[in-house]
Nucleic acid binder design. Structure first.
Length: 707
DNA sequence: ACTGATAAAGGGATCG
């Protein structure tokens, strides 16, 4: 029994809580963490007690009389740190262990107290670790050179992203300053690639995964309401109102604008029907305090409510349990669907209720595909960038600044041993450093490098600590109260009416210089406009969509409207006789050319477009219908494809040419500082799946329509 | 020719 392995204060904590038994993931974690020296990844569904699974054994094992901070907890969100602070403090209450929050909004006083007497548990963000390395490297040493454990919460949110590579690098740098190496425990409900998760410990071979596969029962119902205009159909809203009015509901409409539209319209319907007024919106443009109010209302209020939100309520922020989760149109990933479904039925024994409303046939098909994959237990693997030259460059600047200059060979050696960059060769590191010197980002003094004149501007900016780009926002206020922040768009003019924070406003004044918008309440308005590229979708989801089109199965979770729409869509595709799903794809022939339905990932589609361009085949990808319109005949198309290998050879040249015109790489904040060659390499890895596209074009067997 | 098109995350030191 793992309970016996715990220290007395922790056993007392469990007794006081009157827990009848420990959860499976807790039992497993306690036994393993206390009896081995391995690193662990704890994978278990939301609300299964993962935080305790990590902290019960860690707090039992660690000797807090040792000098320095003993346990470092890293979270992707400030809001999550603030939540977890209370839980960890509670866990520590029978011991003399200080718990300190360390992030941009945390109290200076508490931080200063920690510096004076470093001990206990610290809760921190990756950006705050970065800032500490840059501005107070001596504090890093003083605080974190005797760590025993590092806990990474919601580790999936880091995997496959730039922020994840940054975190890996910071962990590597932390290990370097530690006297003895610390152990890592990663927590998540949705891991699509365990090997990749293991890389975060820096020691894959000694990392074990503890997986609790128990899942909750979920009732799913699919409904279909065709959207003909820009606005959501009225019958959908009426149906949604009837479904949700007597429940606690989280509603995910996939975009900020639609979140506002749904919240405001449901509130109006509720008003007409004398229903409750508790309709909220929750997303990044809603003011932080307003969001906290909504979270508190959900957590503490006994009344029913409906929060129309985006991925802001996807991660572990505590809002208690809801009765229903509503998804309007398909999620972009299975991981997202898992997190959202996990928001309902959190109480023991409670069933999760999921409603999916589709507004167009393609989205219905994608929703069905996601749901089937969810039930199969599939999670898409993250996109991996093997050679993140842009992140290496950022970390090089951070190291030089932190050390106030160091010999070049030392800088090279620090980057070479950093496990975040183990695929990058020494000569590549040297070449990038030489480029930084040539561009005045670094300055060479004999054998030393220090930050250069251009580099100072970058490194001394507050914007240096993060590796993601952010848009510029205008603050929206109403007589002294902040409602939220909106990215500027031509829509934001005086006398325009907009929706924000589930309310309707008229813009009375726009101050371009101060980036402020003053509003007053109004009666009718439009959702704010947001611009942005599309998200990327995994190949497996697209393949599943094709499978559903040609499956004879009757899905019980489809209600009549959805069933009928799927039947129509299948009928349309029945003119293509597809038998082998791996490479056969529907192809529609016409006088103008042909249309190829690829049913593959976004990144492969981008690769296909680029390759076709290099083959001088005119093509246009139609996102809404997931197909290529190709301006040649079927015969010309196959002739062109025979020169595929030649096109492949020209890929780098082509990407380089594009970057010569515009130095900024999509989704890479620091990539623009790289030498052109490396810039192209980053873009090739991040934006395209060229190898996947080659494989696809080599094997694809287009199946023309029979009619 | 025109419209419409995911979201989200972070932050130092100093001066008044």
């Amino acid at each position: 029994m793992s309970f016996e392995l715990l220290s007395e204060p922790i056993r007392k904590y469990i007794r006081d809580k009157r827990w009848e038994q420990l959860r499976p993931i807790q039992n497993a974690a306690i036994a393993r963490i206390l009896t081995t020296e391995n690193h662990y990844i704890l994978a278990s569904r939301t609300a299964s007690g993962k935080t305790e699974a990590a902290f019960l054994p860690i707090l039992s094992k660690v000797n807090f009389n040792d000098p320095g901070v003993q346990v470092l907890y890293i979270s992707p969100l400030i809001a999550l740190i603030n939540d977890q602070f209370y839980r960890v403090e509670d866990l520590c209450k029978n011991m003399e262990v200080p718990v300190t929050k360390w992030h941009g909004e945390a109290s200076r006083g508490a931080k200063n107290r920690l510096i004076k007497d470093p001990s206990g548990v610290v809760l921190i963000t990756p950006e705050s670790i970065e800032a500490m390395f840059v501005n107070r490297p001596y504090d890093v040493k003083q605080l974190f050179s005797n760590l025993k454990f590092v806990v990474i919460d919601e580790i999936h949110s880091f995997i496959g992203s730039d922020r994840g590579i940054q975190l890996k690098s910071l962990l590597s740098r932390l290990q370097e300053v530690n006297v003895k190496s610390f152990r890592v425990v990663g927590l998540s409900a949705t891991i699509g690639d365990y090997e990749e998760a293991k890389l975060f410990t820096g020691d894959q071979a000694n990392t074990r995964v503890l997986l609790d596969k128990t899942s909750k029962e979920v009732n799913a119902a699919f409904r279909y309401f065709k959207q003909e205009k820009a606005e959501l159909p009225l019958d959908l809203l009426d149906n949604l109102y009837a479904e949700t009015k007597d429940n606690k509901v989280l509603l995910f409409p996939n975009s900020r604008g639609r979140a506002e539209e749904v919240a405001v319209k449901l509130k109006k319907i509720s008003e007409r029907n004398n229903g409750h007024p508790y309709y909220f919106s929750h997303h990044s443009s809603v003011d932080k305090e307003v969001r906290e109010y909504v979270e508190d209302f959900a957590k503490n209020g006994h009344a029913n409510f409906c929060i129309s939100c985006t991925s802001t309520l996807e991660l572990g922020i505590d809002i208690g349990s809801v009765d229903e989760v509503v998804q309007i149109d398909a999620t972009h990933s299975i991981a997202s669907l898992i997190q959202r479904v996990g928001r309902s039925g959190r109480r023991d024994g409670a069933v999760s209720n999921l409603f999916l409303y589709a507004t167009n046939p393609w989205s219905l098909l994608q929703s069905i595909a996601c749901w089937l994959l969810y039930k199969e237990g599939y999670i898409e693997p993250p996109a991996i960038c093997k050679k993140p030259y842009d992140l290496l460059l950022h970390q090089a600047l951070s190291i030089v600044k932190g050390y106030s200059g160091l010999p070049i060979y030392e800088l090279v050696s620090k980057l070479r041993v950093n496990f975040a960059f183990k695929e990058i060769a020494t000569h590549e590191i040297e070449e990038i450093i030489q480029h930084l010197i040539a561009t005045d980002m670094l300055e060479q003094l004999q054998q030393e490098v220090i930050i250069g004149i251009e580099g100072e501007k970058t490194v001394n900016s507050r914007d240096f600590y993060s590796v993601f780009k952010t848009e510029e926002n205008f603050r929206v206020t109403n007589s002294g109260n902040t409602i939220g922040e909106l990215p500027f768009s031509p829509q934001l003019q005086e006398n325009e009416n907009i929706l924000l924070a589930a309310r309707i406003w008229k813009i009375v004044y726009v101050d371009i210089d101060a980036k402020k918008i003053e509003v007053v309440p109004a009666k009718d308005g439009k959702p704010p406009k947001f611009s942005g590229g599309g998200g990327i979708i995994a190949g497996k989801i697209k393949e599943k969509m094709l499978e559903v089109l040609y499956s004879i199965e009757e899905y019980q979770f489809l209600e009549e409207t959805a069933r009928e729409e799927l039947r129509i869509l299948k009928q349309e595709f029945s003119i293509y006789v597809i038998k082998e799903l791996q490479y056969e794809r529907p192809m529609q022939l016409s006088d103008k050319g042909l249309i190829l339905y690829t049913f593959t990932s976004t990144k492969i589609n981008r690769g296909i477009a680029l390759l076709l361009e290099l083959l001088e085949v005119k093509n246009d990808f139609d996102e809404d219908n997931d197909r290529f319109k190709v301006g040649v005949t079927k015969e010309q198309f196959s002739v062109a494809l025979s020169s595929l290998d030649n096109a492949y050879e020209k890929i780098d040249e082509s990407i380089t040419a594009t970057l010569e015109d515009n130095p900024f790489i999509p989704d890479s904040k620091w990539g623009y500082l790289l030498p052109l060659k490396y810039k192209a390499a980053v873009m090739r890895q991040k934006y395209y799946d060229i190898e996947g596209a080659m494989l696809f074009l080599k094997h694809v067997k287009p199946v023309a329509n029979t009619a």
